[in-house]
Design a protein around this nucleic acid. Structure first.
Length: 927
RNA sequence: GCGGAUGUGGCGAAAUUGGUAGACGCACUAGACUUAGGAUCUAGCGCCGCGAGGCAUGGGGGUUCGAGUCCCUCCAUCCGCACCA
């Protein structure tokens, strides 16, 4: 009996690939390059489940295919190794996160190697490795030493800004900077002392320190993200959380907002993903307008996208956080305003969001002057206005904006119509149609006319202008945690300075406990001597105590893969000039507004500074869908240790229990294994149907807790890596979310066995015929390689598995074991089932590996040449027959019509001159 | 609320430009072979109907000789953003 011994075959070829370093990618300018990147995993303690490799398999298929097409392929893998879970584990166990991380990485690597990927492991990166984060720190310093010039629209050296300041002060500088910079002259600049100068420069740097409001949990000594806070308490532990201003490192990503938006039009990414980034960046075009406050020198500036509605403006609303409120509040309103501000301050962001519908606010007692009409507008404070967007103040136009309308109704403020005929009796009307009706300079104008007119009025009066606003915020770039890259900054007299390049990396120090100090300082404060002594100095200065956020290391890693062990640069010019950018990036959507946006930002920055070649790092991106778990459920009758089979469960009062999926096959529970699974199940009883116990199932996230995790190692040992690879592809379209179901895997396994058997006799000897293939056999093989090639090019890998199956079915029926057929089929199969392909390739007498073979060109003539006769029927009766040589679709060919009955119906009885057909169908008749 | 996606047998799914809907696989049924297997092979398998035939791609409408595919509308599920002025 012929046997397909996948275990022997796969072991043999994995060892061969390793020994020969078959997939080592080297710069080779005589060949075109192809760079395929997978989103590198965070090595969690749970190991890989079958969902993780999905995208890697797809990219590996493309890579192996590209190699047969003559490309020099870079396909690396590494680990995003800094992260919270390792740190949390360290806090609980005292185990150093580096130790657990390394263990996890090794486990991941073993699992990955089992699947037979063509990764170049010599280029592996680990973000937690000092030789790697040395360069993350280096990029941080590059950002620190740069400012963004809107005139040349790129990042420039900070020295260059200093030179401008020395020459002419900052009045002519058009830079991305903090809002509170004041103007100074060259002379004033010269007169500032070092600390003052550095303070100003910090407001221009692309990484900068700023005061930001955070969720601070004093009991845990840490900052929490919005989703870790529930109703003012920490989700874990239930400790009180307050909003606190903290000095934090930030990245000036907002400087790149416009370019990040425009760049989206130049890359081949899924539209939904691009849309997510567009929404996140949130560009809106409008106008800014400054209003005077009655009886004060202070002014209020607002941003609006609807300056045309300015005559509908009846009151002003400020975000409660604004300092100006305190200044303008009248004595009689003071108490009320302060109470309101205090309440608003303690509401978390999330809190504010959940109470969206509740109208709240307070009158300050002050009035602003309408710049167009001169009317007095009451100034209110309300938390429906966000401090973080625009100027934190709005001109309320209740006639045109529903939120303003609700507010006006609630506090009985006046509501004016703006356009003729608009109905505002029930709700606001945001129309732009018609002509403006209010008295004033915009009366009778249309939307566009009014907008232009209003803006030019603002500009004439010097109180406003056209303005573009972005929703995107600068990214906070610091965490009060241990397990992350140290920030390479030291403080001298409270002023931050970068560590010198030659002193990098600043290595993460050893500490006794991975918790904040009693004073609430980050864990790094526990380290002894965590200081820095600059060259030529005798004094040791303290280093920054927070570490970088999780996304730091992943924002540039694709460059490191090009030249992973370079100690002199983050990547050599040679490698960078050759590999340039990523041709295909495969990963999940969950990184849409995180990693993928930050990476584009850093890449643009590196590009500005001449460190990168391409403006966009990832030319083409594909989102693979997540593989979900398919949980198995047993139904326990409440109050007993009795379990009832699926279809009988409704007759009892039951609770569903998750059963480990390894104890279930085709929804049938292995009762004996179930009893041994947990001690409390030893005496369990069962109510069966058809003498079997059937489990229910549910699609959920794959997770240990739900006992639905399927480990790829188990699949590999039972069916082999090739079967796993093909089955994951066969499961459905790559982009789609789908549950894992081990059922169907037999079909793919059968296919490989069948293929094997076609070329092996009963005693497992390789038997191949040297006869020339017939037309029919040629047709099968050429159709297959054509389809597989097309499918790989558009990543419809599920259908190419089907195509290969059909080919083998047909060849088996023909008992075709011809050399030429096998040779071509093996090449087509090799990206999917590399081990089996290599083995057959060798048996054919080839050496050097199938990936070095040329992908066969398909021959169109095999696919098209044959004569067909097709009936044309109407109402089920055959009315005509058309005979023609089948040809390429869309070609117009003349056909002899044997009977004209049907056609005459369409042509008023006249015989047709020409009938245009595609195979099997008439599409047009020309009379 | 806004934006995006998806909807086809018992199940996973196919279906160039609009052209025999359900390829391929799972499950199921029947049979063959047998040194009895979770192996292999053959046939069947959308629904209704004995049949001829009819009905079927979330519902309804439209364009077309012809619609899973294009247009309108409604419904359901999932995802993202969410007081963004």
């Amino acid at each position: 009996m012929a046997s397909y011994d996948f275990q022997k075959i796969e072991k043999k070829w994995q060892e061969y690939w390793q020994k020969e370093q078959s997939f080592k990618a080297q710069v080779n300018t005589s060949k075109p390059k192809f760079y395929a990147l997978d989103m590198f995993p965070y090595p969690s303690g749970a190991g890989l489940h079958v969902g993780h490799p999905l995208g890697y398999i797809a990219s590996d298929i493309v890579c192996r295919f590209k190699r047969t097409k003559g490309f020099n392929v870079l396909h690396p893998m590494g680990f995003d190794a800094f992260g919270l879970p390792a740190e949390q584990y360290a806090i609980q166990t005292g185990q150093h996160p580096a130790v657990t991380t390394e263990e996890n990485i090794n486990r991941y690597k073993d699992q990955l190697k089992n699947i037979g990927f063509s990764f170049d492991w010599s280029k592996e990166v680990q973000t937690c490795d000092p030789s790697y984060y040395k360069w993350t720190q280096w990029i941080f310093i590059q950002l620190f030493n740069s400012w963004y010039d809107y005139d040349s629209n790129k990042a420039r050296d900070i020295e260059n800004l200093v030179a401008i300041f020395e020459q002419s002060g900052n009045a002519s500088v058009n830079a991305a900077c903090d809002e509170d910079v004041v103007n100074f002259t060259a002379n004033e600049w010269q007169a500032f002392n070092e600390t003052q100068q550095q303070g100003i420069l910090l407001k221009y740097r692309l990484t900068y320190l700023s005061e930001t409001t955070v969720n601070w949990c004093p009991d845990m000594g840490t900052v929490l993200s919005n989703d870790e806070v529930k109703d003012g308490f920490s989700e874990r532990g239930g400790f009180p959380v307050v909003r606190k201003k903290m000095s934090q490192w930030s990245m000036r990503i907002t400087a790149y907002a416009e370019r990040l938006l425009e760049g989206l039009d130049t890359i081949e990414w899924p539209d939904p993903l691009k849309e997510m980034q567009r929404n996140w960046i949130g560009k809106s075009i409008g106008a800014e307008m400054t209003l005077n406050i009655d009886g004060h020198d202070d002014t209020i500036t607002v941003f609006t996208t609807r300056i045309d509605t300015v005559y509908g403006l009846t009151f002003m609303v400020l975000a409660p956080e604004l300092d100006i409120i305190k200044k303008i509040t009248t004595a009689e309103q003071r108490d009320e305003v302060e109470t309101y501000i205090e309440t608003a301050k303690n509401k978390s962001e999330r809190d504010r969001m959940t109470h969206v519908k509740k109208v709240s606010g307070v009158f300050t007692g002050a009035y602003a002057i309408h710049p167009f009409s001169g009317e007095k507008l009451p100034i209110w404070a309300a938390d429906y206005v966000l401090a973080g967007y625009g100027t934190g103040a709005v001109m309320a136009v209740p006639g045109g904006d529903q939120r303003d309308y609700d507010f006006a109704k609630h506090f009985d403020l006046s509501i004016l119509p703006i356009y003729e005929g608009m109905d505002i009796s029930e709700e606001a009307n945001p129309t732009k149609e018609g002509k403006i009706i209010n008295k004033g300079m915009l009366e009778g104008l249309t939307f566009q006319e009014a907008t232009d007119r209003a803006i030019s009025f603002l500009e004439e009066k010097g109180i406003g202008s056209k303005k573009i606003n972005f929703r995107i915020r600068d990214a906070i770039f610091a965490r009060q945690r241990y397990w992350g890259e140290p920030v390479p900054i030291y403080f001298k007299d409270g002023t931050p300075y970068p560590v010198a390049d030659e002193d990098l990396p600043i290595v993460l120090p050893e500490i006794d406990k991975y918790l904040p100090t009693a004073d609430g300082d980050p864990p790094l404060a526990r380290a002894d001597n965590f200081t820095y002594t600059p060259k030529g100095s005798t004094e040791a200065y303290s280093l920054e105590l927070s570490t970088m956020p999780g996304w730091a290391g992943s924002s540039w890693y694709w460059y490191r893969y090009m030249d992973a062990s370079n100690d002199n640069a983050f990547v050599s010019d040679e490698a960078k000039d050759y590999w340039k950018d990523v041709d295909l990036y495969i990963g999940g959507t969950e990184h849409a507004t995180g990693h993928l946006l930050y990476s584009r930002f850093w890449n643009k920055f590196l590009c500005d500074k001449g460190f990168a070649k391409e403006e966009e790092p990832f030319k083409k991106l594909v989102n693979q869908g997540m593989i979900q778990g398919r949980s198995s459920l047993a139904y326990r009758i409440n109050g007993t240790n009795k379990y009832v089979s699926f279809s009988l469960k409704d007759e009892y009062d039951t609770t569903k229990i998750h059963v480990d999926v390894s104890l279930v096959e085709n929804d049938v529970l292995d009762i004996e294994a179930f009893k041994k699974w947990r001690p409390d199940l030893k005496d369990a009883e069962f109510i069966l149907e058809d003498e079997r116990f059937i489990c229910g199932n549910e699609v959920e996230k794959m997770s240990k807790r739900l006992y639905n995790v399927v480990n790829p190692d188990d699949i590999v040992s039972k069916y082999g890596a090739d079967t796993l690879r093909m089955y994951e592809m066969f499961l459905g379209p790559l982009e789609q979310f789908k549950p894992w179901n081990t059922h169907g895997i037999d079909g793919v396994f059968k296919f490989l066995r069948k293929f094997w058997r076609l070329f092996h006799n009963e005693s497992d000897d390789f038997v191949v015929s040297n006869d020339t293939p017939t037309k029919e056999e040629q047709k099968i093989i050429h159709r297959t390689i054509k389809k597989v090639e097309e499918d790989i090019n558009n990543l419809s890998l599920n259908t190419s598995v089907s195509t290969l199956m059909i080919a083998v079915n047909e060849l088996t029926a023909l008992k075709c074991n011809k050399r030429e057929v096998l040779e071509k089929l093996v090449i087509a199969l090799s990206p999917f089932a590399p081990h089996t392909s290599e083995e057959l390739w060798e048996q054919l007498g080839h050496s050097g590996g199938v990936s070095l073979a040329k992908y066969p060109d398909f021959n169109e003539s095999y696919l098209t040449e044959s004569t067909h006769e097709y009936p044309i029927s109407i109402n089920g009766k055959v009315r005509a027959k058309i005979a023609f040589a089948i040809d390429k679709p869309k070609d117009e060919i003349e056909a002899e019509v044997l009977s004209h009955d049907l056609v005459k119906k369409w042509t008023d009885g006249k015989p047709p001159k020409k009938i245009i057909i595609v195979p099997k169908r008439i599409i047009n008749v020309v009379v």
